[in-house]
Computed example of a mutant assay.
Amino acid sequence: MLQWAQRRVQAAYERLLRREISGAPTHVAVIQDGNRRYASKQGGDAPDGHRAGAQTTEQVLHWCQEMGVEELTLYTFSTENFERPDHENEALFDLLERKLYEFGDDDRVHDGEVCIRVIGDRDALPERVREAIDYAERRTEHYDSFTLNVALAYGGRNELLNAARDVASAVEAGELDPEDIDVSAIEDRIYDCPVRDVDLIIRTGGDERTSNFLPWHANGNEAAVFFCTPYWPEFSKIDFLRGIRTYESREESWRRAKANRALALVRELGGVELEEARSVIDRFRGNLPEESSVEELGIEELDVDGESSVE
């Protein structure tokens, strides 16, 4: 009876969260923490936790597609994880190999047109895992409806360091002018295929840190971050929806701050950069304080010569 009541409450809360959410982030990145601690709590070994976590991964993939998320990145194995006991890593590599082959053949993957890609130092992985990666990527490379990035042997600092080295080598070889070094020059050297900026990072397991995960695509985009206490195998749809709600709150706050900065620009600078400020205000008019408006600030329309004035 108690379990039935709990399920009813959870279902009601899930419906409430779903009604509160009006959209979804384009790119969600997840730090899947707590598999080993979950296994220990259950009286099992680390491989038991990883197997349970793999089931959660499949559920999250479905939830993302259901919500309209277009890209999901999973932090599955970091460069630091190589320091764990060999028997634990070997069991995890066995699981990764099997799951990659399964994903490559899964009808749900093909029906949903999911493109599977692996990011990280794949050369550091066992050959059998690399072969499974090649299989999954080759089987799904022509899809573009949804992208699943699996971060294996991944380290954000190494990623940026290698990109910086490539840029330096290109400059030294005369292939790249220092004046031409821009965002695209770095991004083109991070991955073979483009990765969208991260909108939301979710971390399970209770720790409140992002652990060197996607520094270029997350920090540069000021991604929202949602930390939650459940271990990864315990991560529920309610937790996922709460993460989406955090993203929406973060976006609303960002839009309001952007609109207020535009208003401050108008007040302080008058005609200087007024056209840019006006365009920002128009974009975020719904987020402006009720007591403020372009008209109340006395901003006249730009004249034919492109000049503006403030009364």
Results as ranks from 00 to 15, higher is better:
11 A>V: 07
164 A>K: 04
295 E>Y: 06
256 R>D: 00
63 W>P: 13
267 R>N: 13
133 I>P: 11
214 L>W: 07
66 E>Y: 09
250 R>N: 05
39 A>V: 09
194 P>N: 08
41 K>M: 12
129 V>E: 00
283 R>T: 15
30 V>I: 15
111 D>V: 10
233 P>Y: 07
200 L>W: 02
269 L>A: 15
274 L>N: 13
15 R>W: 03
270 G>M: 03
254 W>R: 04
49 G>T: 12
175 E>L: 00
264 A>C: 11
195 V>A: 15
172 E>Y: 00
72 L>G: 01
134 D>S: 14
214 L>K: 05
107 D>M: 04
115 C>S: 14
206 G>L: 05
280 V>M: 10
17 L>N: 13
37 R>T: 13
56 T>L: 08
276 E>P: 04
34 G>Y: 03
22 S>Q: 11
157 R>E: 14
149 N>Q: 10
246 T>C: 07
1 M>K: 06
42 Q>D: 12
260 N>E: 12
169 S>P: 00
134 D>H: 07
87 H>A: 14
121 D>N: 12
157 R>Y: 04
41 K>C: 10
82 F>P: 02
186 I>P: 02
145 S>F: 02
208 E>T: 15
290 E>L: 06
204 T>R: 08
78 S>T: 12
167 V>R: 03
90 E>T: 08
228 C>V: 13
311 E>A: 13
151 A>S: 10
50 H>E: 03
129 V>T: 13
167 V>N: 08
274 L>W: 03
136 A>G: 12
53 G>T: 09
24 A>Q: 10
86 D>T: 15
9 V>M: 12
